[in-house]
Amino acid sequence: MAEALAFYTLSVLILGLAVAVITTPNTVHSVVFLVLNFLCVAVLYVFLQAEFLAVIQVLVYAGGIVVLYLFVVMLVNLGRSPEEHQDPRRLGLIGLGLSGAVLLELAGIIAYSYTREQSPPVTAAQASPVQGNIEELGWLLYTDYLIPFEVASVLLLVAMVGAIVLARRES
């Protein structure tokens, strides 16, 4: 019951934030909504007892990817007048609040994963000889899913070569 309530609340939040991302006229606000969206998805992962995935979601998406987005927004600048960029203190406060939220969430995830340690994982890999989220994922990646894992490395190589090919200045 409590889980269902939490799930539906989160789902409404995730969908609402996703809509906000594409409807906000201000690009920076849009990115901030995206961060919140990613964080809510991370909470969803925690409910699924995929704590490792939740941490990765926060670190990679809410962290790395959004920083990239912000860089692009900053560089492109979308023709706004300089006055609108004012009030660094307010922005600093927002930044402080956001980073606090991220820290809280990480702490919450870790605390939650400790309290849930006793319950057996419900994944398909119940037969795996290792315990714990990260170990299990690693086990699966290097045994059952070794081939797709290796192909993914080729895929990343292709993406890297492609980025260089397309960005290189022709002499």
């Binding site: 797709p148 192909v151 292709v158 070569v161 492609g162 397309l166």
Partner: peptide, 24 residues
């Protein structure tokens, strides 16, 4: 397996995205 199929599709697709834009 859906995972093998998907990763194959993605490898093909990413290569083609770049090849389509090869005439810079």
């Amino acid at each position: 397996d859906l995972i093998t199929l998907f990763i194959g599709l993605e490898t093909m697709a990413v290569s083609f995205y770049i090849l389509a834009g090869f005439l810079k």
